[in-house]
Amino acid sequence: MLQTESRVTVRLPEPLREGRGDVITMNATSLGDIIAELDLADDRDELFNFAVNGDLVLHGEKDVALKYGDEVEIVVAFAGG
């Protein structure tokens, strides 16, 4: 039951696909679950930010709660020139 209720869609940027395709689904109740699942923890040099249902998350990302059907996108975020 839990698996169905916590299913979310995650869109991956090219550098993170690694044979996984550009869209995956997984069980996650927070962004922290996705970070753990994709092994994205703690590399502060990485430029990947999360957007949940189109809204970019700029801090407190591990604690952002997710619900069934949420669409998460990982975007490359940096500043331009």
Binding site: L47, A51, L58, V76, G80, G81
Partner: peptide
């Protein structure tokens, strides 16, 4: 992951999503 591949236009997306 960014500059060598697509350059700075990458930032358009996060800016509009924000």
């Amino acid at each position: 992951n960014a500059l060598k591949k697509r350059g700075t236009p990458f930032l358009y997306k996060p800016s509009r999503m924000l």
